[in-house]
Design a protein around this nucleic acid. Structure first.
Length: 339
DNA sequence: CAATAGGAATGAT
DNA sequence: ATCATTCCTATTG
């Protein structure tokens, strides 16, 4: 495929696996893997993130079906054509809490096309962008689905009706055979507690896809509870996520965490702050006023400015969290413990 | 002139 | 007690 572009939903799933593995103090590695449709070359990439989960994207561009398309599909039932081949039958024991990455249902991949990226040029950077875009795409699609279905993003909050809505939606998304009454009595907590085997008992035909798709939602909710940077500088804010505010993981957000969050979302914030050398943790604040604005927004401190923000950064000097790089430059800092 | 470096007082948790 | 905010003076490029 010479020019990668958004493809229609008719194409078969182009699954990718996004694996978030924990790394103790600094953060987490996100691995995205997939295989290009027209070549045998597989691609993968890593990036740092918060989160200890496994995210599977069985077909992330199928997730981008717009609402009207879906609504039309709901009326006329499409032919049940399971597109995804089953993964390993042995499922994880308790999926809600801790999962071993290698035990998760692996959906066979056929294609994944990098959206709107020309291959060959600036590869190192586009890989990062790719990962960010994939994850953001998933989060965006989940949010869209939530609005569409009027449900919350976190599956564990669902009541029985929400579960049914989600099931119906997922069936149509992946053209699965209807599960019928199988999940009738389950609320979100029940659903989240189910392992792959439980899914298999209730609906042998689509258990893998349903389980994998639910896994995405659970992972997204979990991730969002830990590292949420949902400010949209240009457009109006969209806070679908109930636990999106700073109160999620207990303690207030530290400035260094906030800066790293911005740095890890280059797709959104590279105009304000970006890595000069990611391995060494060296970054540059490109727009001090904007970064200060975002920080003030996050901390609900409207009078925040770069003067104050930089003072806070300077407090990190003696704590050994952030320092000036060896070759000191304006607006350039360095994390003492890089990811 | 904006960035840098800290001291010091004050708040917030 | 820790971290961040606020305000400030002095220095630097």
């Amino acid at each position: 495929m010479a020019n990668p572009r958004k493809r229609h939903a008719e194409s078969t799933g182009c699954p990718a696996a996004v694996t978030l593995t924990d790394s103790p103090n600094t953060g987490t590695t996100v691995k995205v893997e997939g295989v290009a449709s027209d070549s045998t070359e597989a691609w993968s990439l890593d990036v740092s993130e918060h989160g200890v989960q496994v995210l599977y994207l069985p077909s992330f561009d199928i997730l981008s079906i717009d609402e009207t398309t879906w609504l039309e599909r709901v009326r006329e039932p499409s032919t049940p054509t399971p597109t995804l081949t089953p993964g390993p039958e042995a499922g994880p024991g308790s999926p809600s809490n801790q999962r071993e990455p290698e035990q998760c249902p692996q959906v066979h991949s056929s294609a994944l096309v990098p959206p709107a990226l020309q291959p060959g040029q600036e590869e190192d950077r586009s890989l990062e962008q790719m990962q960010t875009m994939v994850v953001e795409e998933v989060l965006k699609d989940i949010e869209t689905a939530c609005k569409l279905l009027n449900i919350t993003p976190d599956p564990s909050d669902w009541n029985v009706g929400n579960v049914q809505k989600w099931l119906l939606w997922t069936e149509h998304l992946y053209k699965l055979p209807p599960v019928g009454m199988a999940f009738q009595q389950l609320n979100g907590k029940d659903l989240c507690a189910m392992g792959l085997e439980d899914f298999h008992k209730l609906c042998p035909e689509s258990s893998d896809t349903l389980y994998a798709h639910l896994d995405i939602w659970k992972s997204a909710a979990w991730m969002h509870g830990r590292c949420s940077v949902t400010e949209s500088p240009t457009t109006g804010s969209q806070d679908m996520w109930p636990e999106a505010d700073s109160s999620c993981s207990g303690q207030p957000v530290h400035l260094w965490q906030f800066l790293r969050e911005l740095l890890l979302k280059p797709h959104n914030y590279s105009r304000y702050i970006r890595w000069l050398n990611k391995d060494k943790g060296i970054f540059k604040i490109e727009d001090s006023a904007q970064v200060a604005r975002l920080w003030g927004q996050r901390k609900n401190r409207p009078a925040m400015n770069y003067d104050k923000l930089s003072r806070s950064i300077r407090q990190y000097y003696k704590k050994g969290i952030i320092r000036k790089p060896d070759m000191s430059q304006r607006l350039v800092y360095q994390f003492v413990h890089p990811v």
